[in-house]
């Protein structure tokens, strides 16, 4: 008995060839293999009766926690009036801090999703631009439209540019461009994160002062 199964028998097990077409010796091997396959337990599996309740209890706990975080985040970013009185002895320290801040500051990468207007305290108009001269249709899908690939089409303009302007709430949004309804492309000029399944989502952070 060799260590490997004959390829013809494997094709029969895969359902791609008929066992009757095999020579007698291989047919016996295939019949033995089918006896083994027939012994595989295929009965349905049911979980305990409390499964649904446990899942939903965990989901509700996370929903409540997320609600608290949202309220805490809203409190943290809410605009407040801050008054600072600079004493003469602080001037030297502030000057040193300012020099340090200039040295460590990094330029923001150029992106195709840019703030075009502040529409209110909690929302900002953001323009999405993609250069895709060969495309017939482009849309942007993301967390702001439930990843609906048809909800936000971009409008073509000269030079193969496609644009759309959306009013987005403050916070972090993930998105991707959808070209010709099928190809999902991350924004080539924006930071991206792995979505956990081998694809990349672009990340857009909207603040009252600037987007990205």
């Amino acid at each position: 008995m060799s260590d490997t199964l004959d390829p013809q028998v494997k094709r029969v097990l895969d359902g791609e060839a008929d066992i009757a077409a095999l020579p007698p010796a291989l047919r016996a091997e295939a019949e033995a293999a089918f006896r083994v396959l027939a012994a595989v337990d295929c009965t349905p599996v049911s979980f305990s009766g409390t499964f649904d309740a446990r899942v939903m209890a965990a989901v509700r706990a996370r929903a409540a926690r997320h609600g608290l975080w949202r309220r805490a985040a809203a409190w943290l970013v809410a605009p407040r009036e801050v008054r600072v009185v600079v004493r003469p002895w602080m001037a030297g320290a502030l000057a040193a801090a300012a020099v340090l801040a200039v040295l460590v500051a990094r330029p923001t990468p150029e992106t195709t999703a840019t703030r075009v207007a502040t529409t209110g305290i909690d929302s900002v108009a953001v323009r999405f631009v993609l250069r895709a001269p060969a495309a017939h249709a482009v849309a942007v899908a993301g967390t702001f439209n439930q990843w609906d690939a048809t909800a936000t089409p971009l409008v073509p303009s000269e030079g193969g540019l496609w644009t759309a302007t959306l009013v987005l709430p403050r916070g972090e949004h993930q998105y991707a461009f959808v070209v010709d309804g099928a190809d999902w492309l991350p924004d080539p000029a924006a930071p991206a994160v792995d979505d956990g399944f081998g694809r990349r989502n672009s990340v857009l952070t909207v603040t009252p002062g600037r987007a990205l």
Binding site: S48, R54, A141, A149
Partner: peptide, 26 residues
């Protein structure tokens, strides 16, 4: 193992809920 599977499926549902806004095709 049914017990391990039950834990895995439960965790998967909870993780799916947490990341539901990343589900591109609901």
């Amino acid at each position: 193992s049914v017990e391990l599977a039950e834990d895995a499926v439960q965790d998967a549902f909870v993780r799916a809920y947490e990341r539901l806004d990343q589900c591109r095709d609901p």
